[in-house]
């Protein structure tokens, strides 16, 4: 069954430009779809339609078999993990409190929250003893991004929206995080939309790669097919990946 469906969706900034132009994309349960495309292509906008931060002005967005408009927005958002483009951590909450936001909103008891936070910190490679009580201002950019991922995972949502979760990292850390992601995904089987500028990252992490340009999806395929694509715009993105690509097992 499809977890997320974009059915002929358009979005126009109120009184402004059209940003999404008849986009259709169906994402299966447990599938990882990477959205790639140049800056300003409309990737973030597409993500924000899923948890109703934005409403489409034409077409339908279906989440878990129900039209997003039928969902109660608060319910919908709490059941979707969202990793925000620039982490968006609450500066007045410690790392642990940031991760615990949705569980707290959902009214979990303290003991359960504490063990969940520890678990997630371990999972994202941040030893709880060192990081739990730090403030976001005391973290490096990469550490903040990991906290952002841990926060999105906290209430164990079936759907994860990740907006450049590994952006602006050095190649080594980035590779580490990517391999952590693959390990986690093998165990948890979430439905994931992963936005990235990096074609290489998309090809290595996703089951399918969707290429966006000027508000349209111009290609959507599994990595091998994408590599073989003859579309000039896709080739251009692929050529930007300088190191010859080899898919990990």
């Amino acid at each position: 069954m499809a977890a997320i469906e974009f059915l002929d969706v358009s979005y126009t900034v109120p009184g402004g430009a059209q940003i999404l132009d008849h986009v259709s994309l169906v994402i299966g349960e447990g599938e990882v779809v990477a959205l790639v495309g140049r800056s300003g292509a409309g990737k973030t906008t597409l993500l924000r339609l899923v948890n109703r931060l934005l409403e489409p002005d034409a077409g339908r967005v279906v989440v878990g078999g129900r039209d997003a408009r039928e969902w109660e927005p608060i319910r919908l958002r709490r059941s979707i993990g969202y990793v925000i483009q620039d982490a968006g951590l609450f500066p007045h909450f410690t790392v642990a409190d940031n991760i615990a936001v949705v569980p707290r909103l959902e009214g979990w008891d303290d003991a359960r929250i504490r063990s969940r936070v520890d678990e997630l910190l371990q999972l994202t490679g941040l030893p709880p003893a060192v990081y739990a009580d730090r403030w976001p201002g005391e973290l490096s950019g990469g550490e903040r991004q990991r906290v952002g991922v841990a926060r999105a995972l906290a209430a164990d949502p079936a759907i994860l929206l990740m907006d450049e979760p590994f952006g602006a990292l050095d190649p080594v850390t980035r590779a580490e995080l990517q391999s952590e992601f693959r390990g986690v995904q093998r165990r948890l089987r979430k439905t994931v939309i992963l936005v990235t500028h990096d074609m290489r990252e998309a090809l290595s992490l996703a089951d399918r790669v969707a290429v966006m340009e000027s508000g349209e999806i111009i290609a959507c395929d599994a990595p091998p097919a994408m590599l073989a694509s003859g579309d000039a715009r896709v080739r251009k993105l692929l050529e930007a990946v300088t190191v010859p690509f080899s898919q990990d097992s």
Partner: peptide, 10 residues
């Protein structure tokens, strides 16, 4: 982004 994070967390 901080405010938006709050909204997006539900």
């Amino acid at each position: 982004p901080v405010r938006e994070a709050g909204v997006a967390m539900g």
